[in-house]
Design a protein around this nucleic acid. Structure first.
Lengths: 250, 250
DNA sequence: GCTTGAAGTTGACGTAGCGGCAACATCTAC
DNA sequence: GTAGATGTTGCCGCTACGTCAACTTCAAGC
């Protein structure tokens, strides 16, 4: 006996559109197509449809569903399913992390932070320069940095969030007053800058001087650091150089 | 200072294609578009981009991202995020269930089941007739049935999986031998059928007779039950009627 | 025989978030 | 002047169908 498309749709819980779709992509071809174009299905197609729906509801794509059903090889099917399970687990873990991050973001907003650039990254796992950092210093260095971040205390995190801003603002003020980079007040700020940097990685003397130079070379840092004063970066680089030569091991 | 599209792309980790896309949907409009069509971005756009990427990475759609950023109202943002978190949690739970189901399916395949129609539904939460069952008997009955299934022991589950098949095969053999439906051997099989049915719901006398008639009326049951013998369903209905009248309370 | 309604058909467009072409324009360096 | 890098604007493609629109077919009632 042959079922019409609507009968199959009703008894299987899918729409007739879905059945037409499955036909059009060759996933479920009707037993017979009448001269007037109408589709008729037999028991065999119903069973195939059940398998399709089962696998689809497991979250597999229709492509994969087609392959699994085509390969009647049981071992293949197990492999595909195992792989799919891996994916599901990973995705589930990812969502778990997302939930945590969203929670942290909500918390942050509630504790009075607006979504200003400074704290928009609080509790956020990525920083805006990560892509470039990976390009510039390599993956190992960046990953090591993240490794280090995991050991942070709350105070460390606070320092990482606000430290650089305090340094930049302090330097801007001192420079405006005409204070020399060798002065203690400047060097104390650079000390703070060094400490904050050490939260991510520990620069050697040369590396720290290089970092100062990089600030100068990079237009974005120039903008980010010196709000208004375009020459602040050079001031900072000079201060960093003095600090490195006097305090850091070569 | 103005950044070109490639510079922004590199420093933010997205592609220039993405930036063009964001422009085209109005999510991130460049600070300036030169007469030759080139896009230039300023600090302000970079900050906005960071917010966009942050929210996007939290899993919000670009539509929602746009709304959240536009509503500078902090309370709104919190609400949206809270709602989004709900969704994330739900999705995570769903994936968890899927993992379980996939696991069960793999187990089933390993324990020697091929993907034949009989056992393809083992460990599966839905059965192929659910949609129709809901239509025929109403949601409460179906839900009650699922409720009952939760109390199953392993033996119950085994019975549910294999019971009907054993009944159908046994009946087919007895009918082929010409055994009358009133005979003990037939009635014993019907007893098993009744017990299996009771795993889902407990039919009254009339309900059980009605079920037998339904088998007869339904073309799919006719096919499913009587493999080869088209008249097996009537035989079964008659046996069920005898059983109901002799054993069940009215 | 004619109309009506139910059930079917084949396109075609829309969805989200871009990726990946192609064809063309512009800018910089040698 | 020419090559190469860097840009631009379309447009198609992807998933798994939903949702029209415009027709055709078939059975039933007048």
């Amino acid at each position: 006996m042959a079922w019409s498309i609507a009968q199959v749709a009703r008894s299987s819980g899918v729409t007739s559109r879905t059945l037409r779709h499955y036909h059009s992509i060759g996933l479920l071809v009707p037993a017979r197509v009448a001269h007037n174009g109408r589709r008729y299905y037999e028991q065999e197609q119903l069973l195939r449809l059940q398998q399709i729906l089962l696998l689809r509801d497991l979250g597999l794509s229709l492509d994969v569903v087609g392959e699994v059903i085509a390969h009647r090889d049981e071992q293949d099917a197990i492999e595909v399913l195992a792989k799919h399970k891996e994916w599901l687990v990973k995705e589930q873990l990812r969502l778990g992390r997302l939930v945590q991050t969203v929670d942290a973001t909500i918390d942050n907003l509630k504790r009075g932070g607006e979504m200003s650039p400074e704290n928009v990254f609080e509790g956020f796992e990525r920083n805006p320069y990560e892509a470039e950092a990976r390009e510039r210093w390599g993956d190992e260095a960046v990953d090591a940095s993240y490794q280090r971040m995991r050991g942070w205390t709350e105070a460390d995190a606070e320092k990482a969030r606000t430290g650089y801003t305090r340094v930049h603002e302090g330097l801007a003020a001192l420079k405006a007053e005409g204070v020399a980079v060798t002065e203690l007040s400047v060097q104390e700020l650079i000390q703070l800058h060094y400490e904050v940097t050490c939260l991510f990685w520990t620069p050697t003397r040369e590396a720290y001087k290089g970092l100062g130079q990089m600030y100068v070379d990079d237009e974005r840092f120039r903008q980010n650091i010196g709000s208004g004063d375009d020459a602040l970066v050079e001031y900072m680089r000079d201060a960093m150089t003095v600090y490195a030569d006097s305090k850091l091991d070569s």
